[in-house]
Write a protein that binds this DNA or RNA. Structure first.
Ligand code: FES
Ligand code: FES
Lengths: 153, 153
DNA sequence: AACATACTTGACTATTTTAGTCAAGTATCG
DNA sequence: CGATACTTGACTAAAATAGTCAAGTATGTT
């Protein structure tokens, strides 16, 4: 799974934008200062969020970024896929030049575990919205039960 | 989360040992050949598994490694912690020289999400035994429901 | 005892990934 | 027109990963 500085920063940045949703756009320099992330890095990350359609940009003086949807309609999963590409990369076949050298191919007991983990993680991230993240009390970090029904056994 | 080549290899190696549980020990060279992992790397990984008490070594000719417990009593979580140290590293405070520069410290909506994810993943890995991994049919990769009861909301 | 087998230890290196930087743009507002 | 601020893509330093190497030590067999 890819949890890098981009993950951490992008999450903080978009939550920051969520706080001023409906109000004026925020410049990357302001974001850089308030979230303590290098300015050029902020640019890079917000550009990816923009390309994924999660935020809008407004050029020129007084411009900046703003959410393109309300915080309830943006999930953490979308944010992470936007900045990292894919959240959980396949484990089997990643090493040994891509060929699966497992002896029990087709009915292997290991690979389903990685696949299910991937599903578990994706579903978890998709169950969490920006609105959840903006709540300033701990404990509301996704309803795990609700999400479980959708994981294939 | 740390899912590296060590993770992948160590899992395959210990499953391999599981298959001959009760029979003779298997040399690292044999393991290297049958699992297609560099011999010196196999040595390194099995040594870590040994230090964690999951496998036993037998020196001298005819020696090798064998499980030190039955496959039902070894979990994937134990294996991963043995080879990687910690499975999921803290996200908050990992960047920005260790200080949490979140504006809503103490009641932040983001950090509980990483913490819960970590718990989710650890519980999942701990719910899977070597015996599960050895079953050569897909689909028996841990009972997610059972594991959920133990995750703090 | 000698010898081959096979684990043990720890340092070392090449490769890849991550984190962050830089420069040269383009569009918009006032 | 000029300042503000996004846009693009390449570039670099630092860290992590993947794998190697060499010099051991212990054990079973002959
Ligand atoms: S297919 Fe990857 S370990 Fe079996
Ligand atoms: S404490 Fe890390 S983002 Fe709030």
């Amino acid at each position: 799974m890819k949890i890098t500085s981009s993950t951490e920063y992008a999450t903080r940045l978009i939550v920051n934008l969520g706080r001023t949703f409906g109000a004026a756009a925020v410049s990357t320099e302001k974001l850089s200062e308030s979230e303590n992330v290098p300015a050029d890095y902020v640019n890079q990350l917000l550009l990816r969020l923009k390309r994924a359609g999660l935020v809008q940009s407004h050029r020129g003086s007084g411009g900046g970024y703003s959410l393109s949807r309300s915080p309830e309609k943006i999930t953490l999963g979308e944010v992470l896929r936007a900045v990292e590409g894919t959240i959980f990369e396949d484990v089997c076949g990643k090493y040994n030049d891509g060929r699966k050298d497992c002896h029990h191919q087709g009915h292997c007991g290991i690979s389903p575990v990685w696949q299910k983990l991937a599903a578990l993680i994706e579903q978890y991230f998709d169950s969490i919205t920006l609105a959840h993240l903006m709540e300033e009390k701990a404990g509301s970090c996704g309803k795990v039960e609700a999400m479980l029904g959708r994981i294939p056994q």
